[in-house]
C-alpha cells in the first residue's frame, strides 16, 4: 500500500539504485555539476571574500561617473515595439543617471509604431526617432542608431524591457574601473516569472545563464555575450569593429570581436 503512494518514476530510481542513476547521468555529475554548481560556488565565495574591494571600486566608479556626467546614448532598435515605447520612456525618466539621449530606430514596423514614436519625439520623450520604411534587421537598425549617437558611452536596450532605477548608471560604471573595458553586459531578469509556467522556466534559465552564468564567466575573464537587451559599449570600439554584424548570434559576435580588439 505505501508503495502506491510513491510516484512511479521515484520507484524506478529506487529500484535501479545509485549505480544505475550514475550510469545514466554520468555527464551531469562530471561536467555539468562541476561547471554549474562547483565553479559557481567557488566564484560566489571569491566574490564574498572580495566584496569590500568590489564595493570600493563601485563607489569610486560611481563618483567618477557622476562627477564627469558624460552624455550616454541609449539606442533601441526594434520592430513593432510601439506599444512598449511610452512605458520605456517612463522607466528611463526614473533613472538616477539622467544625462542621456534616447535614440529609437523603428525597423520597418507595420503597426502604429511610427505614429507613436513620432509623437513621443514631438513630446520630447525621445531625442531621435528614426524610421526605416524597409526592415533591414536588428544589426542594421542598431548600426543606424550608432550613426547618430553622440554620447561617450553607448547603451543598447530592448524596447520591451523595464529598468531598475539605477540600471543605466550601473551598466556604465564598470567603464571607470578600467579603460580597457570595451563593453559591459547588464543583468537581465524575468520580471513576470510568476505569470505562467513558461515565464517561470525562462526565469530559471535566465538566472542560470545570464545572472549567475555571466557573472561567473566575467570573473573568469571568458565573458562571451553582451546581451542586446541590456549592454553598454565604448563608441570608439564599436567604430573600430564597424558596429553589429548581420545575425543570428549578433550579440555573441560583437562581444568576440570586441575581445579580439584587446
Amino acid at each position: 500500500m505505501p508503495d502506491q503512494l510513491i510516484p512511479e518514476y521515484i520507484q524506478y530510481w529506487l529500484a535501479g539504485g545509485w549505480g544505475k542513476f550514475f550510469r545514466v547521468f554520468w555527464y551531469f555529475a562530471i561536467f555539468e555539476f562541476t561547471r554549474y554548481i562547483i565553479i559557481d560556488y567557488i566564484i560566489a565565495f571569491i566574490h564574498w571574500v572580495k566584496r569590500e574591494d568590489y564595493d570600493d571600486r563601485y563607489k569610486a566608479g560611481r563618483q567618477a561617473l557622476f562627477s564627469e556626467n558624460p552624455l550616454i546614448s541609449i539606442i533601441i532598435p526594434g520592430k513593432n515595439e510601439g506599444r512598449h515605447l511610452y512605458k520605456l520612456t517612463k522607466s528611463l525618466e526614473e533613472q538616477t543617471y539622467q544625462n542621456f539621449e534616447l535614440i529609437i530606430v523603428d525597423d520597418g514596423s507595420d503597426d502604429d509604431t511610427p505614429i507613436i514614436g513620432q509623437n513621443l519625439e514631438k513630446l520630447g520623450l525621445i531625442d531621435k526617432f528614426i524610421r526605416n520604411e524597409v526592415r533591414g534587421g536588428k544589426a542594421s537598425a542598431a548600426n543606424l542608431a550608432l550613426q547618430y549617437a553622440t554620447g561617450k558611452f553607448i547603451v543598447h536596450l530592448d524596447a520591451d524591457c523595464s529598468f531598475d532605477r539605477d540600471a543605466i548608471a550601473r551598466v556604465v560604471i564598470p567603464f571607470y574601473y578600467d579603460e580597457k573595458i570595451g563593453a559591459v553586459g547588464g543583468n537581465v531578469k524575468v520580471r513576470n516569472y510568476q505569470e505562467s509556467l513558461c515565464s517561470s522556466l525562462q526565469a530559471i534559465e535566465y538566472l542560470k545563464t545570464v545572472s549567475v552564468g555571466r557573472i561567473v564567466t566575467s570573473t573568469l575573464g571568458i565573458y562571451k555575450i553582451v546581451s542586446g537587451a541590456f549592454g553598454a559599449f565604448r563608441p570608439e570600439i564599436l567604430d573600430k569593429i564597424g558596429g553589429w554584424d548581420i545575425g543570428p548570434g549578433l550579440d555573441g559576435d560583437i562581444t568576440v570581436k570586441i575581445r579580439k580588439c584587446g
Binding site: 526605416n132 524597409v134 533591414g136 534587421g137 544589426a139 542594421s140 537598425a141 548600426n143 543606424l144 550613426q147 564597424g242 558596429g243 553589429w244 554584424d245 548581420i246
Partner: peptide, 10 residues
C-alpha cells in the same frame, strides 16, 4: 543599408 555587413549610413 549594406545587406552583407549590416552597415547603415548616409
Amino acid at each position: 543599408h549594406h545587406f552583407v555587413c549590416a552597415h547603415v549610413g548616409p
